[in-house]
Amino acid sequence: MSTTLEIKDLYVEVDSKEILKGLSLKIEHGEMAAIMGPNGSGKSTLASVLAGKEGYNIVNGTIKYLGNDLLKMSTEERASSGVFLAFQYPVEIPGVATSTFVRTALNAQRRNRGEDELDAMEFLKLARQKAKELEMSEDFFQRAVNVGFSGGEKKRAEVFQMSMLSPTLAILDETDSGLDIDALKIVAEGVNKLRDNKLSGIVITHYQRLLDYLKPDTIHILADGKIIKTGDKSLALLLEEKGYQGITGAN
């Protein structure tokens, strides 16, 4: 089996308003797919639905993840089976050290998968190694999760968490928003280091520039609740040149 994720004909409502309108999408193992689209097209809704956030009414459609019915899984089951969402706006958790948070999460996932938990020393060793790979200082281990982090620090911390939890499907929700070009490079390089033939990714973005560094395999244009065009890198360049209206043909 080589398909990580298969979404078929997905209709989703939020507060009785239809947001996704027949979205279909297939992601293979090791594939990095970019989803681009104008504001309000449903990009973040898709990310939230995949991660299992409450408040989304699934009207129709199916989502298969590694052959299982994703919509039947709880948020934490999805996480434990390898779905990771890098948040557009990472949330602050005052008083909880980042290392405590990641260790609690990692061990919860391991427990849910029936694996042994990591002890403090094993965890620290792994965390140090990952921080080094991502060229991050260990200072942030003891800082409360996202509290007082700059925009760039928050996004890097998300990538660190992702690397610690080693997901199967990583969803990056506008990870580039609010980053200057240097921070963007660093984050993209961080993600690239995690790429291997097991990691599939969905990169949600407005802009071409992140894709310069991430180099996705496929690019999908999401507009008005469904995928209207799929292509390779040239599609992103076309988009940059003509804008969404030029691509969608809308006036």
Binding site: A79, F101, T104, A108
Partner: peptide, 29 residues
């Protein structure tokens, strides 16, 4: 907030573990 709970659950904790973690952070001092 719902956002906090979702964030923590997305990392693999069940709702009760998520609340316990957030509350322990609040009470840490």
């Amino acid at each position: 907030s719902d956002e906090q709970l979702f964030y923590v659950q997305q990392r693999g904790l069940n709702p009760e573990e998520a609340v316990a973690l957030i509350v322990n952070g609040f009470a840490k001092e």
